[in-house]
């Protein structure tokens, strides 16, 4: 029988560290993919996932059981991702010779050509808007979950998401993936 997240959290807080392993198993793929789609960097996504889980573990005592554990974890991971993107941008500005790491070959193999082009267009978006697209369309998060993760009211999530889609459309057009009739 699958144990509820909150029961597992209770177990961890009660000293059963192994229960945290179940939570890692349950959500590592989701967190990893969110981070990868945001950064397009396999190693960075791996690192973000690791840090997000460690932070969640360290702060588990502050997790409120009336909230979804997954939403709470997601928020940590999204924050970590956005902070890293921002730090990297700052570093790139300080050192323009620095280039983004190439995708590892195994990742490229796993992507379809069209999928790669869509990801290229996604990377043209500002991280805040990219996050909205990734969370809604690639991770199927609800408006509430997105709002929780990005600290935005649901109404604003909806309006910004609409803008984000239009921005993505523009990027897809400029990259020749689709054309405006």
């Amino acid at each position: 029988m699958t144990r509820e997240d909150r029961d597992l959290v209770r177990d961890v807080l009660g000293g059963k560290t192994d229960a945290f392993g179940v939570l890692v198993e349950r959500y590592q793929k989701v967190i990893f993919n969110m981070a990868y789609r945001m950064t397009r960097d396999y190693d960075e996504a791996e690192d973000i996932t690791q840090v997000a889980f460690i932070r969640a573990y360290e702060n588990l005592g502050r997790y409120k059981a009336d909230h979804k554990f997954f939403s709470w974890l997601y928020r940590i991971a999204v924050n970590e991702t956005l902070n890293r993107i921002k730090s990297k941008k700052k570093m790139t500005q300080l050192n323009p010779t620095m280039v983004s790491p190439e995708k590892s070959p195994d990742v490229a193999v796993g992507e379809t050509e069209l999928g790669e082009k869509v990801q290229d267009a996604l990377m043209d978006l500002e991280p805040g808007y990219r996050a909205l697209i990734v969370l809604r369309h690639l991770r199927s998060c609800s408006y509430k979950e997105i709002g929780d993760a990005l600290d935005l009211p649901e109404k604003r999530v909806k309006s910004r998401l609409f803008s984000a889609r239009q921005m993505l459309r523009t990027a897809l057009v400029s990259r020749g993936v689709v054309r405006n009739d």
């Binding site: 961890v12 807080l13 009660g14 000293g15 560290t17 945290f20 392993g21 890692v24 198993e25 590592q28 793929k29 990893f32 993919n33 990868y36 789609r37 396999y42 996504a45 791996e46 996932t49 690791q50 889980f53 460690i54 573990y57 360290e58 588990l60 005592g61 990742v107 796993g110 992507e111 379809t112 069209l114 999928g115 869509v118 990801q119 996604l122 697209i133 369309h137 690639l138 889609r165 993505l168 459309r169 897809l172 993936v177 689709v178």
Partner: peptide, 30 residues
């Protein structure tokens, strides 16, 4: 646009990621 987003699939995280996370957490914390 949204249909195109459906072309972006999921990747598998590294096989040892779970182990590395569990090795990094302080087992005595709680």
């Amino acid at each position: 646009t949204c249909e195109l987003l459906g072309k972006v699939g999921d990747l598998e995280p590294p096989a040892d990621l779970r182990k590395r996370i569990m090795d990094s957490v302080d087992a005595t914390r709680y």
